[in-house]
Design a protein around this nucleic acid. Structure first.
Length: 399
RNA sequence: GGUGAGAUACUCAAGUGGCCAACGAGGGCAGACUGUAAAUCUGCUGGUUUUUACCUUCGAAGGUUCGAAUCCUUCUCUCACCA
């Protein structure tokens, strides 16, 4: 049982620090019924979850299946500082209302995966407000600048002459202090969080808690382009609240290589199953596209249900295999006659009439399935289905 | 506090008085080919129904000039070295 649990926990993990401690916790649970805690932080500056976040959530769910209580931290205090991870330099100071709203949407989305009854929610302003300036200065004496600069992000930025603000040095300390306050047993995060996670261990030792949290880092999921990490700002993400058709279509658009990565990190199929599919694709007995369809169905189904997922597949096949028009497209009404470029902008298919003009010249615009080649075309009264490229559609009624 | 270097479009980066809506690369979008995949090839990539034209843009504000991304002044920000 414990062996099995360990295997599930190790799956896909980038690095596990102090596996022995995790084994001990599992033993404690299975032999004596002792619960243990797994901490995870959430930065409330953005609340829309995408598949990249679910890698972490799935792992937390695995822990819940094996007796863990998840400590979900809403970093309302740390949000005022900004995590230096990555490059984001400027971040607006958030109002507490906005943080509360983000925290709420975050929870709604997170509980699509997590077990609510095994999750505790904390706002870290609760202890940081109490800590005060003295406490924070005290905290900052516990770590040296030289060690802080060992951190990869900082080192790179320092060497490439980019600015690092003092407050950013504070961030890892504060995140680590959360672990002291909650006496966490395990903390999870992305590989880019490793430094911050290790800080938790360092501080727990300094504060003599008598234990040091184990740390598990999960790989950062690549976005749809297969290169950069999945993120909303790069627009290479699959949001978990997107509609079923979109999720299905986006999964199908990833490269074959990336598909295996997604299988490993997102699918609930066993590693053995995945390996055998991989083999079948390699020897030609399974078309890579149908492997991808299976994945797309699984992921769509996770956030909806089987019937909806199957419908998404059917819709997709209709549109792209048989070149039909999607059944559910946005409709716009406008007064005629209307210039086609203007209509494209009004239907939100193009960002400007100049862009629309360029796309017409390139033959990217179709009107009722026929290519448009006249930039000056006026749409007279009637109903039209207008299309940009392969995937953007709108229905326009000219009055 | 002192000295020096720098800030150009989504990113990197050329341009040091008119040939600049601004070289090049990446990214993005579109076309061909496909499995809406990848790879490859091609085109586009500030805005505007004046589209071989016009308008706005090179950290900010002023100034010089017929003309400024380019010269001058002040300011803001970044970095390096010294203290």
């Amino acid at each position: 049982m414990i062996e099995n649990a360990i295997k599930e926990i190790q799956r896909g993990a980038a690095e596990i620090i102090d596996l022995e401690y995790i084994k001990k916790l599992l033993k404690g649970y299975y032999e004596e019924g002792k619960p243990y805690t797994v901490k995870v932080g959430f930065d409330p500056t953005g609340a829309d979850l995408h598949l990249g976040h679910t890698v972490l959530l799935q792992k937390l769910k695995t822990f819940q299946n094996h007796g863990a209580i998840v400590q979900l931290i809403i970093g309302d205090f740390t949000a005022t500082i900004g995590d230096p991870t990555g490059k984001s330099e400027t971040r607006k100071v958030m109002s507490s209302d906005a943080i509360a709203a983000n925290a709420k949407t975050y929870q709604e989305q997170a509980f699509l995966i997590l077990d609510r009854s095994k999750t505790e929610i904390y706002y870290n302003s609760k202890w940081f407000d109490k800590l005060g300036a003295t406490g924070i200065v005290g905290l900052s004496t516990l770590f040296s600048v030289a060690r802080m600069l060992e951190r990869d992000d900082f080192e790179k930025r320092y060497k490439s002459n980019q600015s690092i603000s003092i407050s950013e040095f504070l961030y890892p300390l504060l995140q680590g202090y959360d672990s002291v306050e909650l006496k966490s047993d395990i903390e999870l995060g992305g590989t880019d969080q490793k430094f911050n996670l290790l800080m938790g261990r360092h501080l727990q030792r300094t504060y003599e808690l008598g234990k040091e949290q184990a740390v598990i880092t999960m790989p950062i999921l690549e976005g749809l382009d297969g290169v950069a990490k999945m993120s909303k700002s790069l627009n290479n993400y699959i949001g978990i609240t997107e509609d079923a058709n979109t999720i299905y279509a986006k999964v199908l658009s990833i490269s074959d290589e990336l598909m295996w990565r997604y299988y490993e990190l997102l699918s609930t199929k066993s590693l053995a199953e995945i390996a055998s599919m991989q083999k079948e694709v390699a020897d030609g007995s399974l078309h890579p596209k149908s492997a991808k369809e299976t994945l797309a169905l699984e992921l769509t189904q996770r956030f909806y249900d089987e019937a909806v997922a199957l419908k998404a597949k059917e819709e997709f096949d209709n549109v792209f295999k048989s070149n039909q028009i999607p059944s559910d497209i946005e409709e716009f009404e406008m007064d005629g006659p209307v210039w086609i470029c203007k209509a494209l902008v009004d239907a939100k298919l193009e960002s400007s009439t100049s862009q629309a003009r360029r796309d017409i010249i390139q033959g990217a615009i179709k009107l009722n399935q026929n290519k448009v080649d006249d930039v000056q075309l006026q749409l007279e009264v009637g109903e039209y289905v207008i299309q940009v490229g392969k995937r953007k559609f709108a229905k326009i009624e000219v009055k």
